[in-house]
């Protein structure tokens, strides 16, 4: 039995003619540019891009100035219109407050039972009310419309 097994065993040997030589030789990748050329290219491309960026930046600044100029030209008209409407609304608010608080004894319009908000300014000074006071007597819809103007536009 032992002899039969030994007969079947075949030793692992090299192929006839021996193994092929091992390819250990270094094959570097093909170089198109050397280091100096790559640095020069980097600097050249960056310089060109900076030049184009500068041109674009100037154009954008010019356009911004033009738009600002256009807006400033119509600004006085818009402010004039806004001022008139603002003064009308202030008067409406004051009348509304007088009507609303007519039955409350001791109430004076623009004060808290005669105690003014500002004590050391001349009485005929127009203090612009804050947003919530300005819209106090309007409908909530208008309030939301103005408060969330940025979301609507």
């Amino acid at each position: 039995m032992v002899e039969a097994c030994q007969a079947l065993k075949k030793q692992d040997l090299p192929p006839p003619g021996g193994y092929k030589p091992i390819p250990f030789k270094r094959i570097p990748a093909k170089t198109f540019f050397n280091g100096y050329a790559m640095f020069a290219g980097y600097i050249g491309i960056t310089a060109g891009a900076m030049y184009l960026y500068r041109l674009n930046c100037k154009q954008i600044k010019r356009d911004e100035i033009e738009m600002r100029s256009a807006k400033m030209a119509i600004y006085p008209m818009i402010i004039a219109e806004r001022d008139r409407e603002f003064l009308k609304q202030i008067r409406r608010n004051r009348d509304e407050e007088a009507k609303l608080m007519a039955d409350v004894p001791g109430w004076e319009v623009g004060t808290y039972y005669g105690e003014p908000v500002y004590t050391n300014i001349p009485p005929d000074t127009l203090v612009e009310p804050i947003f919530h006071e300005y819209y106090a007597h309007s409908s909530p819809k208008e309030w939301y419309r103005r408060a969330h103007l940025k979301l609507w536009s």
């Binding site: 623009g110 127009l126 009310p129 006071e133």
Partner: peptide, 29 residues
């Protein structure tokens, strides 16, 4: 509101003039 009765406000009739009824893009143009 902070505006008391001492503050002189102009009447509504003084403030009413024909307003410019023109939209934004037209004004910008």
């Amino acid at each position: 509101m902070v505006v008391t009765m001492d503050v002189k406000l102009p009447e509504e009739s003084e403030l009413t003039v024909p307003e410019v009824n023109i939209s934004g893009p037209t004004l910008i143009a």
